[in-house]
Design a protein around this nucleic acid. Structure first.
Length: 216
DNA sequence: GACCAGGCACATC
DNA sequence: GATGTGCATGGT
């Protein structure tokens, strides 16, 4: 009979840091590239996203006005390798049109009240909870928790089962008060863990199997 | 050829 | 609130 030890979110974070080291998230040269990448990566692997980002880099160098000025047809051609290109072209165009109203001043947008910014992002077509939170966390410097599928799978193995993004989000608001870098690393580490630990059998053999998670 | 990959919107019950 | 479906590409 194996023993289990209790962890809170902060404890889990530090276990992941010890286990995996720096996460390497989010790979990009500019915040506009991160915004585009956050849309392109929806339900798609990063390898395919890289092809599209290379196309966009050559076409626009991620200059935001240049991206906003791309026709939907041109955008679709550039991002085709990462799939769902009709949906994603609309989303990118919608986001950059919205940013144009703020003169692409990301610092000004970041100064928006966190919950208001979240609602503004969610109001854009093609941006849901995960993408909105990823943009807040990695572009707009607002620490927050991303309750994505990798995360919910890991948490279920740790004894905390939540059906939806929103239901887990409610129990992780404390991360909104964390230092930005820690909140960013937490998400990257959870997903990096999930990429290698994919099954209950994998998890049973991982160092985290000795823990159960406690949430507020 | 099935299955997966750092989701979202919409219909339906 | 949950569940199912379409959206599309490229690697394994």
């Amino acid at each position: 009979m194996s023993t289990t030890r209790s962890l809170d979110l902060n404890g889990l974070y530090h276990e992941l840091v010890d286990l995996l080291g720096p996460s390497g998230w989010w790979p990009a040269d500019s915040k506009f590239e991160i915004l585009v990448g956050a849309i392109l990566v929806q339900n798609t692997n990063w390898q395919n996203v890289d092809k599209s980002l290379d196309n966009l880099r050559h076409a626009t160098n991620f200059d935001p006005q240049a991206i906003a000025d791309l026709s939907i047809d041109a955008l679709q051609t550039l991002i085709r390798p990462s799939g769902f290109y009709r949906n994603k072209s609309r989303t990118i165009n919608g986001l950059f049109s919205w940013l144009a109203h703020a003169n692409f001043d990301l610092d000004a947008v970041a100064a928006t009240d966190p919950q208001r910014l979240r609602q503004q992002l969610l109001a854009l077509p093609g941006i849901g909870e995960e993408t909105a939170d990823a943009m807040r966390l990695y572009v707009f410097d607002q620490p927050t928790f991303i309750a994505d599928n990798y995360c919910r799978r890991l948490f279920s193995w740790l004894g905390q089962d939540f059906q939806t993004y929103a239901k887990l989000k409610v129990h992780t608001h404390e991360v909104d008060g964390w230092d930005l870098i820690d909140a960013q690393e937490f998400h990257g580490l959870i997903d990096n863990f999930g990429k290698t630990v994919k099954t209950p059998e994998d998890f049973a053999q991982s160092p985290l199997a000795q823990f159960t998670l406690t949430l507020k």
